[in-house]
Nucleic acid binder design. Structure first.
Lengths: 108, 108
DNA sequence: TAAATCAATCGTAAAATTGCAATATTGTAA
DNA sequence: TTACAATATTGCAATTTTACGATTGATTTA
């Protein structure tokens, strides 16, 4: 089917899954690492840095933008991308809570 | 293409993306939450708890197991699933480092 | 205005994901 | 051994994802 049954899950479960999916690709991890490293946001250098076509990078950027993780500002011919701090912090917190909810107890 | 170009990324980027992908589905988030909540691991109740077919749940469990996030122990006719603490802690740490690598500085 | 540059979008192909019915497998109990 | 229960696996259809060439759109510069 390829169609996730979102109706049967909670808001929270769907939201977390959506955000994780946005991160769940090595190219998008690499893009985020580059943006973070360069701090002063990057744009098309990503195409040079990573070994992917311009159209592909643009598509990954779009996904990250749709998820609200990054934001792009047009600067002349260029587009400058950077982390959206609010979304970043929120996801960081949600994941922290999720991972902390398990405290090691031997079961099986 | 649908084929991720893993060759052009680092071990680390691929590993993190793979783990995140394993989590990036509401059903799998829900399964993990259930396992954590029940602590004493669960097996087929998941089929009752969540509104998905047995085959579907089994498949999601397999993906989580393949990623090393959970482990299953056969207990008679039943299979008891629980969190794999080592993998859990490792992912928790990797994500923590990843998220901390960005410290808020206004850019664009 | 024309040329050049950067990035987004479109169209397309290949592959992966999601979901389930049907079936197979495994272990328990009669 | 046979029947039954719990899971896993198989096979399939619909959908989504990944990737890229080609094109379009926007902006700067000559």
């Amino acid at each position: 089917m390829g169609l996730t049954k979102t109706e049967i899950f909670t808001e929270e479960q769907n939201r977390l899954a959506t955000m994780l999916k946005a991160l769940a690709h090595p190219a998008r991890i690499a893009i985020l690492q580059q943006i973070i490293k360069a701090n002063a946001c990057i744009c098309g250098q990503l195409v040079d840095e990573l070994g992917l076509a311009q159209a592909t990078i643009s598509q990954h950027l779009k996904e990250l933008k749709n998820a609200g993780i990054i934001q792009g500002t047009i600067e002349g011919v260029t587009v400058c991308y950077c982390i959206e701090p609010k979304a970043w912090k929120l996801l960081q917190k949600d994941l922290s809570i999720f991972f902390k909810s398990f405290d090691v107890k031997n079961c099986c």
